[in-house]
Design a protein around this nucleic acid. Structure first.
Lengths: 138, 138
DNA sequence: TTCGATACGCACCAAAAGGAGAGTGTCGCA
DNA sequence: TGCGACACTCTCCTTTTGGTGCGTATCGAA
């Protein structure tokens, strides 16, 4: 899990200077994480994982509570990052559909643990919130 | 992974009305996910997982690139959600330290898969981005 | 002939996120 | 006397996020 940090630490010890390659990799990993650790991205990812190929409006309906603007943006970013493929069928009215790539499916699988965590422990989280609120107020 | 949605679908089929309990649970899961799927939360979580107990400034230094404001906010929210314990030692100068709870450690473990994904596939992501940019421009 | 369906783009606006920097309180050290 | 250490808080400011509503293109149906 911490391969990069460990490698950096090792290299730092060895040469007393942080190599730029690892710095670039670390920042990229962070950037990717920051991108992907997004509410809408996670929700769209899950919708596509569950339903396979989806059309724009359909996807929005399944995700629920997302505006067209955010759906467009999220889908575009996911396409840019290689998580989904966008297929345009040049017919009228327009027909566009979205499918997860292998990369997207892998990410979805990686997020599986977080979903499980949330489903398993949400009661503990609300209990903690209640306790916190009482401690603050009382 | 999709236990809640499946349960809801089953109940919906059976009674033609969505029970409010599951709706509440689903919204709570979403809320928890939205909270937890945050860049700073993930980074702080990892820092604490790696280093055990950390003090405020120390934690900020390890996370890197986080402002005091965001560090305070992130830590407070994590405390509220029962992910960390905040211990104040009433000495001067002040000494406060933060440790993951069991819940926090579980979440950290759940995020492990996402970190691994990012470290494994970041090259594919940048390749996808380059390809996307070229397709857009060219 | 006009309406609806689809998948957006665009413009405008409100709210939230987030950064920079100054202030706080007390002690020990110089 | 005055500065630094720590863990913040507070204010001011900019940037990002996100919502709403309108425009668009074209075809078939009413």
């Amino acid at each position: 899990m911490h391969a990069i940090r460990e490698a950096m630490a090792a290299m730092h010890k060895r040469s007393e200077e942080i190599p730029p390659v690892s710095k670039a990799v670390e920042s990229l990993v962070r950037q990717v994480i920051a991108q992907v650790a997004d509410k809408w991205t996670m929700l769209v990812l899950e919708a596509l994982e569950e339903h396979g190929t989806l059309r724009f409006t359909e996807c929005g309906r399944i995700v629920g509570g997302i505006s067209q603007k955010m759906l467009t943006k999220t889908l575009r970013e996911m396409e840019r990052d290689g998580l989904v493929v966008r297929t345009v069928h040049p017919v009228i009215p327009p027909h566009v559909d979205y499918t997860l790539t292998e990369l997207g499916r892998e990410l979805s699988a990686a997020f599986c643990g977080v979903w499980t965590w949330a489903e398993t422990y949400h009661a503990e989280v609300s209990a903690a919130r209640r306790a916190f609120r009482e401690r603050e107020e009382g």
